[in-house]
Amino acid sequence: MRNSILERCFNALLTNGAFLALVMYLIIFIIYGISQGSYAVSVYGITVLFNNSIVIAIAAVAETFIILMGGFDLSVAGIVVLTNTLIAVQQGAGVGGALLCLIIAIGVGGVIGCINGFLVSRIGLQSIAATLGTSILCSGIALLVLAQPGGYVPDEIAYTLTDSIGPIPVAAIIALLIGLISWILLRKTNFGAGIYALGRDRTAAELSGIATRSVEFRAYVMAGIFSGLAGFMLSAQTGTGDPHLSNSFILLTFAAVAIGGVSFDGGHGSVIGSIIGAGILALLQKTLFSVGVSSFYTGIFQGSIMLLAMLVGSLSLIISKRRAVS
């Protein structure tokens, strides 16, 4: 019994969150294209689109690692802010400075990730509460590092990373790179298998010989590093430091993950979905703008899309379960 391609597409649509997100993206993009005209497909237009979504996309990748494992990481926003302020106060310039910034980003993310990992996997704290604590800590430190907005990010970062190489936006390349790296980590390593295993059934994972604590710890470190990279990209976008980033950042991250079809119960979903989810959020904003929806109501659309994605997600779970039974 061979399914037609169409049938397979429909199946994938319901069971694969990333695919559904992609379809949603395309549909919204068509609306965007119609209302915006040629700008929508110009190099600049697309570069802007990628630039707008890249920070949330990387943050969403970080969050995906933890959510796949059945946890929550609220420290993403804290790490982003802390990284941003530290990068802004560093004095290096030129390529050396850019490299230093990258090291700062990875270092800060790694350290905070280690703390999270330690609190959750060794001490056994509830992830959502522990990361809430570290997130608050981070934003406190950020205020000490940079008492008011200011500082500079080396032009090498600020300009190169937000530009386009020929017709290809740099942000797109970065998104691709981050997507690839995280995909390899999750799908092509034992560590990744461990994350999926842990998210589904901790006891079984343990009995399968997976070093659950170590996997959990490493996942928080990875999430921290990716959050640091998100802070790095934010610095590139704004070209400066600002210790006052709002909580809406973390909400958008979760929204991206949810739209990307990652199951909040853990063990199901992909980073690709989260990245597209972040893209949808940015695109949605632009689309609503271009069709002229009052920005009062942006939230209604954001919320509804999240619910829609989750609804289809839970629907697909029911269907696949039913299919498994029959």
């Binding site: 295993a197 589904r200 059934d201 006891t203 079984a204 343990e206 399968s208 063990g267």
Partner: peptide, 8 residues
């Protein structure tokens, strides 16, 4: 208790 992971 069957230590298999259903999602793998």
């Amino acid at each position: 208790e069957l230590s298999l992971l259903p999602n793998l």
